Amino acid sequence: MIKRPLFALTLLALGATQALAATPAVEKTPHIEQLQFVDQAKRKLAVDVAQMLNDPSFSHLLSEKLQGQREVMINPLMSEYRQRDPMNIAKAEAADTLQAMDLATRQHKGITAYSKGLLQVRMVAPQGMSTENVDTSNMLVAFEPAGDDKHWKEVEAYDRFGNVHKLDAKVQPSMPVLVADINGSEDLRAGVAMMNEAFKSRGWGGLNVRPRAGYVETTKLEKIRLATDEEPWISGKAEVYALVSGINPSEEKPTIAVVDMPYLDYANTDYAPNQLVLFWSNYRYAAANLQLFEHDDNTNYQDLVVAIVSGVEKILLAFKPEFAAIATVAGAILQAMPAHWFSNDDDYIDSFYTLEKGKTYTDYKGVGGNAMMTLKPYRLREQ
């Protein structure tokens, strides 16, 4: 087996970062210079995977891993690809390149310490088509266009010979297509962990359960429904999270917690998660805000935390920590998020301002009308 020292892999990651904007095997498209880092990584992944389909051992391995499922992570896939022919230098280099690009992507997003892999290949197939005995050798490999999906007209895809194909962004192809992507659920899981730790390190953290009289006062999310436009066929499931904010109960500072909602996959669907989303011992005045966002592939979580902290601190300097400041914290969060981090208009979903402790909200709509929730008080008893 060919092994590379750590400094060599680090150089590979740096090389992967520099190589994303240009891919020799495929002619540059006019818009490529405007793509953000993760968009470029997904394009480079699509080109490389398409070229690797020329190798029967790779296409057989990929077909094997996609049996009965729709996605496979790049890091373990490349490790197994290398292990099956450990003395093949060309295969080792191809595997190293993609794994280094995965590392560069995690570094760019600020979650290297929280995730072991983000890049993936998933298959989009016509409804009802079985993924058993699938042959990937001649499939096209596509990647999501950048920008607002409402304006997507074409999707670029590559074949194993390096040719570019233009697919209709609105009409799903009649044949299965591979999509080079990042795993949104893994990205968001790692990002939520990173952000919560960063907020807690500043004394802004939430989700600190402090039992009183043998129980904790919470609010449970019993039902939620999103109402947004239909996603294009190339897009995966939605990855939604909530920022819950308010005023610290004992200090003149805000409290912010990030809550993952991994079950919330599709719009126009009722979900009944019974998820605890508000722990009232964290909030002064028995009131808090809840804002919903959809995960964006290009989000740098470290930069996002810095922007939120800076923006909230700046705005709150003009307010005393009183009841009226609760909604101000939520407004500061929205203002702190630079537009270029959220290239898709659907990334901000909705806001629920000044939710109150002990109150039931039934089919309660957010201010934007894009989300509806049922929230009920719940006493979490200490064991």
Rank of each mutant, 00 (worst) to 15 (best):
L11G: 07
E144K: 14
I326A: 07
N344W: 02
S310G: 11
A288N: 07
S201I: 03
I2Q: 09
L11I: 11
D347T: 13
N268F: 09
A95P: 02
L243V: 08
F293G: 01
A238N: 12
P262E: 05
N54P: 00
V72P: 02
V49W: 08
K91R: 15
K109F: 04
A339W: 06
K109E: 07
A94S: 14
R284K: 15
I234C: 03
K116V: 09
Y81S: 00
H340S: 12
N208R: 12
K91G: 00
S130N: 03
L380A: 14
K237F: 09
T354S: 13
K44N: 12
M139K: 02
A330D: 11
V258I: 15
Y301R: 05
A92D: 13
I89E: 12
S351V: 07
Y81T: 01
P273W: 01
K42C: 06
R379D: 15
V177H: 05
Q291L: 06
P273M: 05
R225I: 13
A257N: 10
M73E: 12
P24C: 05
K320W: 08
R160M: 07
E33N: 15
V258D: 05
K42E: 15
A16R: 06
I89R: 10
A94H: 09
P145F: 01
K314C: 02
E64S: 12
E294R: 15
S235I: 07
I234R: 05
G206E: 04
F58N: 02
W204T: 04
M373V: 15
S245P: 10
V309C: 10
E64K: 12
K376E: 14
G68Y: 01
T228W: 05
E294A: 14
A371Y: 05
L35N: 05
A50I: 02
A90M: 10
P377M: 04
V305F: 15
R82V: 09
A330H: 04
D347C: 13
P254C: 00
L167N: 07
D135R: 08
G128I: 02
D303I: 10
D85N: 13
G15Q: 02
M139P: 04
Y361W: 06
L334H: 12
P24L: 01
K314Q: 15
A94T: 09
L66H: 01
P5T: 08
Y271C: 04
E222G: 10
G147T: 06
E217H: 11
S174C: 06
M73T: 08
Q99S: 07
N344F: 00
K109M: 14
E313K: 14
D148H: 06
A19N: 12
L278P: 06
A142S: 07
N196P: 11
M52F: 09
K314G: 01
P338S: 04
D48C: 06
R202E: 14
R381C: 10
K166Q: 14
V306E: 13
A100D: 00
P232L: 00
A198H: 08
W341A: 12
L188C: 11
T219L: 01
G203E: 07
S201K: 11
Q291S: 15
G205V: 00
D85Y: 09
V309W: 09
L304F: 13
W204R: 03
